[in-house]
């Protein structure tokens, strides 16, 4: 595929809502191999800036793989190969000369299982700033308050900032991880099934939070819960066996899906 060429989209299965701020991520014919096994097959989609994009599909279809390709978390894996392109602001994420660390600083990531560090709540939140070598105390304190307010954890955590983060409940820990992800002021938030380890009440809190964050960040969220996708996202991508089947406005996807497989999946005939 020649560089910079536009992917031709099949309009019948490609009908996303367009945001007002242009595109954040441009994924073009992106393929990925784990050693011999191909996990992604020429996926193409455009993530709109400032919107919430959900990735859905049966487990093992490559949602996490695609998400982790965006901030190059997959670099840790031996024998990984990729094909196609993935661009942020027009720059190839996998291009030569790209600074992976700088790239990751533009993105926050929230994992399936809450993974707070074994430190105090305060230190957890400012970890991205510590990494950058920030020592200004007021700056650190303001960041902690802003991030914890941003992740709706401030009221619960403000009196125990200097206690270990491991003493919090699972839902609180996940919100702490969100606070940590937004502390570095990223453009894109990547969330890999952020609620799958949480109880329903914690889940609905996180969903509300995603709604609040939506205006400020471009969010890509992987979920296997279709109601969740319907509740929080504007655009939804349905993947199946490593291929993008349909990408469109969430409302349309869940009411009148265009592709047959999408229909089968969301009506619960398989998955």
């Amino acid at each position: 595929m020649p560089d910079g060429s536009q992917v031709e989209y099949d309009k019948t299965v490609y009908h996303p809502v367009r945001g007002e701020n242009g595109t954040a991520l441009d994924i073009e014919k992106f393929s990925l191999w784990y050693s011999e096994k191909q996990a992604l097959f020429e996926n193409s989609l455009v993530v709109e800036r400032g919107l919430v994009t959900a990735l859905i599909g049966p487990s093992g279809c490559g949602k996490s793989t695609l998400l982790r390709s965006i901030n190059r978390m997959n670099d840790l894996i031996d024998g990984l190969r990729i094909g196609g392109q993935m661009k942020i602001d027009g720059r190839d994420i996998y291009g030569p000369g790209i600074d992976v660390i700088a790239l990751r600083k533009r993105m926050g990531m929230v994992f399936q299982k809450p993974n707070p560090f074994p430190m105090t709540i305060f230190e957890n939140v400012i970890y991205p700033l510590r990494v950058d070598g920030v020592t200004d105390k007021t700056m650190l304190e303001e960041t902690v308050e802003r991030s914890l307010r941003g992740s709706a954890l401030w009221d619960e955590a403000k009196d125990r900032l200097h206690e270990s983060a491991l003493g919090m409940s699972g839902g609180q820990q996940q919100r702490l991880c969100i606070a940590r992800a937004i502390a570095g002021d990223p453009e894109v938030l990547l969330m890999d099934e952020p609620c799958s380890a949480l109880d329903p009440i914690a889940t609905s809190r996180i969903e509300e939070l995603i709604d609040e964050l939506a205006g400020h960040y471009t969010i890509v969220i992987v979920t296997h819960n279709m109601q969740q996708a319907a509740r929080v996202s504007q655009n939804t991508a349905f993947m199946y066996l490593g291929r993008l089947i349909e990408y469109g406005a969430t409302e349309t996807m869940f009411t009148t899906p265009k592709a047959e497989r999408t229909q089968a999946y969301i009506t619960g005939r398989f998955g």
Binding site: N71, M73, L76, I101, A102, R104, K105, M107, G108, M109, F111, K113, N115, P116, F117, P118, Y127, P128, R130, V131, D132, C177, R180, A181, G184
Partner: peptide
């Protein structure tokens, strides 16, 4: 755990920073 290292790398830490701040402690 791998999740600790990934958490740190995702925050934009380098490999050495991850080792020094997360792994070694």
């Amino acid at each position: 755990p791998r999740s600790m290292r990934e958490g740190s790398l995702a925050c934009g830490a380098s490999k050495w920073q991850t080792i020094r701040r997360i792994v070694l402690p």
